[in-house]
Each structure stands twice: as structure tokens, then as C-alpha cells.
């Protein structure tokens, strides 16, 4: 690797700036978009960031085959029209896709289970990158393993592309209850917990002391309506990712835009049901969705990664 292309300088990890950007996204909605027009709808609706994709997760699910990083031209098309941060996904363990995304100046890289994993042994070593990473987690141990690899943001690993929120709810509740269980434990008990969680001891101790993850925790996967988004916020999510829920709600861009606007407002006013009535008044569509209980275990995307 020559000097010019050597983006991933060892040790230069900009931790403050990475977690700082995650904290600036708090209280917001990150929307999946597949082209410039959708990016414009998302930004006009008040999204805090967009996730540049070739296909939304429900199409990835339907089409099957190998799901990879979006084409570079697609990401650039979206970067050109969005003034808000642009995120993009790399496959789990595919550090080369991640390096390409970083060289493209993508603002956040999602090492995502929605794409087909590239490495069965290791997630990407995220610390040396200058770009921040977000990773999915189903429980506290998984969240802390990703953070120890350098993830600056955690999200639930709800079943993407289904519009079924049950898994995101389970992951958020589990992580928060596992954090609460650590409170007040002595050093020996924390060491045991670290073993059980299969997570680094220093991070387990830090979580026990702070009562929270060292990075923000967002909700993702299966969020389709303003009420879904508000529920995740009430359960402790600091912000929300919405994938297929917006652009699969209706073929009509006006209706998509109404859903997008309502979800943005629902995340701000999540603790005010009277406001939520007003917010939901202009929304009469939602994505059809798929009951995850009918999906065979081996087809679940969330089981990718560990």
C-alpha cells in the first residue's frame, strides 16, 4: 500500500470525532435511500442522515443471491445531492469494501448483516479507520465486542426488510436489562460477567460504572411506522434507522414523503401521545411486511455475525 492510499493509518483512530458524530445524530432518523430522488425526499422530510443502498433490505431479502456493497456510482450520486451525512454498508469482515467506502468519504460505514458476510472468522478491525463504523448487536456481549473492534455506534439487529419490529424490541430490551444487571456488582462478579458475555473486561467495567454503553445505541430493523419509531425511543433507543419502511410504504412519492416526515416527528415527540395523534394523521399507508415467525431460523439476517 503506498503512502497516498494508506488511509487506514494504525493508531490514528479519531475516536472523539467518530463518537461525536454519532452523538450529533441523536434524536434523529437515518433513512435508507437507493437514488438521488429518494435522498432528496429523505432530506426534505428531516432525516439526519441517509444510508446509500443499491436495494432496500426487503428487496435484498426477496431477490436472494449475494448482497454486496453498493456500486460506487450509486453512492456518489447520493453524495452529490445530499447535504446531510451519507452512510453506506460494507459486508461483515470485508475490510476492502470498507476502505473503498472510506476513500469515497462516506460519513459512516455500516458493517451490516443485511449484506452477505465476507469473513466467517473476523469482523473488520475498525479502529484504524478514520471513518466511523456502526454495527448491529442483539445483546450486550455482541455490542461490546463490536465496540472493542472500534465501532463508534451500535444499533439493534432487528430483522431488516420485514417491517416486523419484534426483534429490534427484543434486542433493545435485552441490552438495557443486561446493562442494569451490571450495576453495583463487585470486581469479581464483573469478571465473571465479562466471561459470560464474552466481552472485554475493561469495557464491562466501564458499562457497569456509567450505566450505559460507551457509544450511542440506536434502533434498527423492522421499524415501519411512526408508532414503531416512537416505541423504540421509549425503550431507550437514542435514534432510529428506517429502511424499507419509507420507500416500500407506497409507490406514491407523496405518501412516502408523508411517512418519512411523520417518522421524523415521532422520534422527536416520542413521549407525547397527543402529539403523535397529530403526527400520524397524514399517514394512511405502511409497508406490507412479513411475519418473522414464519421465516426459518437459517434465513434470519440477524444471525450473521456473532
Amino acid at each position: 500500500m503506498n503512502e497516498e492510499n494508506n488511509i487506514a493509518v494504525e493508531g490514528e483512530n479519531n475516536w472523539e470525532e467518530k463518537v461525536g458524530l454519532a452523538k450529533m445524530l441523536v434524536g434523529g432518523v437515518v433513512m435508507d435511500v437507493t437514488n438521488a430522488e429518494q435522498a432528496r425526499i429523505a432530506e426534505a422530510a428531516g432525516a439526519v442522515a441517509v444510508m446509500a443502498l443499491e436495494r432496500v433490505p426487503s428487496d435484498i431479502r426477496k431477490d436472494g443471491g449475494i448482497a454486496r456493497m453498493s456500486p460506487v456510482s450509486k453512492i456518489q450520486e447520493i453524495q452529490e445531492c445530499a447535504s446531510i451525512p451519507v452512510m453506506a454498508k460494507s459486508r461483515i469482515g470485508h475490510f476492502m469494501e470498507a476502505e473503498i467506502l472510506e476513500a469515497l468519504s462516506v460519513d459512516f460505514i455500516d458493517e451490516s448483516e443485511v449484506l452477505t458476510p465476507a469473513d466467517e472468522d473476523a469482523h473488520i478491525d475498525k479502529s484504524p479507520f478514520k471513518a466511523p463504523f456502526v454495527c448491529g448487536a442483539r445483546n450486550l456481549g455482541e455490542a461490546l465486542r463490536r465496540i472493542s473492534e472500534g465501532a463508534a455506534l451500535i444499533r439493534t439487529k432487528g430483522e431488516a426488510g420485514t417491517g416486523d419490529i419484534i426483534h429490534a424490541v427484543r434486542h433493545m430490551k435485552l441490552i438495557n436489562s443486561q446493562i442494569k444487571e451490571l450495576a453495583g456488582l463487585g470486581e469479581w462478579d464483573l469478571a465473571t460477567c465479562a466471561e459470560k458475555l464474552n466481552a472485554p473486561r475493561d469495557l464491562v467495567k466501564q458499562v457497569a460504572k456509567d450505566g450505559r454503553l460507551p457509544v450511542p445505541n440506536f434502533a434498527a430493523g423492522g421499524i415501519a411506522t411512526p408508532a414503531d419509531a416512537a416505541m423504540m425511543m421509549r425503550l431507550g433507543a437514542e435514534a432510529v434507522f428506517v429502511g424499507s419502511g419509507i420507500f416500500k410504504s407506497s409507490p406514491d412519492p407523496e405518501k412516502q414523503s408523508a411517512v418519512a416526515r411523520a417518522i421524523v416527528e415521532a422520534v422527536t415527540h416520542f413521549d407525547n401521545p397527543a402529539e403523535l395523534v397529530r403526527i400520524c394523521q397524514n399517514v394512511d399507508v405502511a409497508m406490507r411486511g412479513e411475519d418473522t415467525a414464519e421465516i426459518p431460523e437459517e434465513k434470519l439476517l440477524q444471525s450473521r455475525g456473532w
Binding site: 479519531n14 472523539e16 470525532e17 458524530l21 450529533m24 451525512p85 468519504s105 471513518a131 466511523p132
Partner: peptide, 29 residues
């Protein structure tokens, strides 16, 4: 976004009027 995108975010010790010691400035997009 005048410095660029997130990869151009940075931190710097700032010398601010009326403060005796530098202030740690984190600049994000």
C-alpha cells in the same frame, strides 16, 4: 460542512480570549 465530510472532522487545542489554558475543540463536519 466547510471543512468537508466526516473524514475531515478534527480536534484542536484552542486559545480562547479570557481563558488561561487551551480549550479542547472537537470539530465535526
Amino acid at each position: 460542512n466547510a471543512y468537508g465530510r466526516q473524514v475531515d472532522s478534527f480536534n484542536a487545542e484552542l486559545f480562547l480570549a479570557s481563558f488561561e489554558t487551551p480549550f479542547h475543540g472537537v470539530f465535526i463536519r
